[in-house]
Amino acid sequence: MPADHPAVPPARIGILIANLGTPDATDYWSMRRYLNEFLSDRRVIDYPRWKWQPILQGIILTKRPFTSGANYRLIWNNEANESPLMTITRNQSAALAKAAAARWGDRVMVDFCMRYGNPSTASVVARMVRAGCDRILFLPLYPQYAGATTATANDQFFRALMAEKRQPASRTVAEYFARPDYIAALAASVRRTLGERIPQRLVASYHGMPIRYLTEGDPYHCQCQKTTRLLRDALGWPEGVIDTTFQSVFGREEWLKPYTVKHVAELARQGVTDIAVISPAFAADCIETLEEINGEIRDAYIHAGGKDFTYIPCLNDDPEHIAMLTDLIADNLGGWV
């Protein structure tokens, strides 16, 4: 190249994993910025802007940052001064980078981003392009597809590509709810937590969504049901031991049922005194698992008369999970490596 030519880094392949997001801190303004970005996403709340934004800006974002901040403080990683989701996703990225280096050497660069908050998708895509990534594989960490999770993460990735002068070739990884190695990792996590004990009921609690989304073509509900069925088969447990429920209901619209918090209370009232709860839709523990399930939902069960409540952690950076994600990545790198 001529002496005055801009430096050109060696070509690399980027692997970018993405999770939902997290506030930078638990104070009012940090929470408000995060919630505003999240709840302004039309994939999440699809009401007309003229109708929704006055409610969001005038009512919800006046009060909710205080309550959400208080909930985050209950689980906050004070040592690192960040949310557990940030800590776990960073650890997942580091473990995947190590596995990728062992398999493909320095041709591959692994990083992570968040759909909402930091590190933003745009900033990490820009960093990858500057590092020489002329191809990027984008992996949303959602086993089941939903418009409000997988699709909006992909949307943000494509928006980030639009800002690049030298736009890399790109691929997105599809949902992986029925992969045998994913189901095997879930089953292993159940056995690791429970040992040989089979609780009276294992509740598979998935993040909820309005029923309307299902009728409009979102496959999320069906994929959650299949994940539960495949998990039961992998465990070899009889029918009726595992229930599928949905949590994190928001607003007045009817959401997918049964609602987890009501279901566990009803189990307790029916005399079920020993339950475990798993969250197959979450690749990493977060506010919905550490505070909602292990707090609000646990309390509802105990208050209704339940006794033994066991929360089964998400797969997080467990070696079996990392091995599964590495194989998933390899399957999607065909022709690139």
Rank of each mutant, 00 (worst) to 15 (best):
R229S: 12
C133W: 02
G305D: 04
A281Y: 12
L231D: 05
Y142W: 12
P210C: 05
E196C: 02
E196F: 01
C113M: 02
E291I: 02
A185F: 09
P258R: 06
L35T: 08
Y72S: 10
R42C: 03
T121C: 11
C224S: 03
I302T: 15
V249C: 05
M209L: 15
W237F: 02
E216M: 10
P168H: 07
R115M: 04
K226A: 07
N154Y: 07
Y311V: 12
F177V: 02
E254R: 15
A18W: 01
N91P: 00
A284F: 11
V129N: 13
L186T: 04
V8G: 05
I312H: 02
I211H: 12
L333A: 11
N118H: 12
G251F: 02
E320V: 07
E79R: 14
L16M: 12
T172L: 10
A284V: 11
G305K: 03
D299P: 07
V203I: 15
R64V: 06
L74Y: 02
G147M: 03
S83G: 14
A94M: 12
E239L: 05
E175Q: 11
R232A: 13
P10S: 12
A126P: 05
Q225D: 09
G306N: 07
L290I: 14
E79P: 00
P48N: 12
Y47G: 02
C224I: 02
Y28K: 10
L35W: 06
A284Q: 13
G271Y: 09
R103S: 13
D181K: 07
W255M: 04
G236P: 13
G132R: 04
R212P: 00
R201P: 10
R73N: 13
N71V: 05
A148R: 01
P10K: 10
G105C: 04
D243I: 00
N294W: 00
T244N: 13
F38D: 09
L230I: 01
H303Y: 09
G271M: 09
D299G: 05
A323M: 06
H221R: 07
K262E: 15
Q223M: 10
E320M: 10
L235P: 11
Q223K: 08
R232P: 01
H263V: 00
C222N: 14
L161I: 06
V203C: 06
D181G: 06
A276Y: 09
R191E: 12
Y145D: 09
A80Y: 07
N118V: 05
L85V: 02
A122G: 03
V124A: 01
R192G: 02
P210W: 04
A178E: 14
T26C: 14
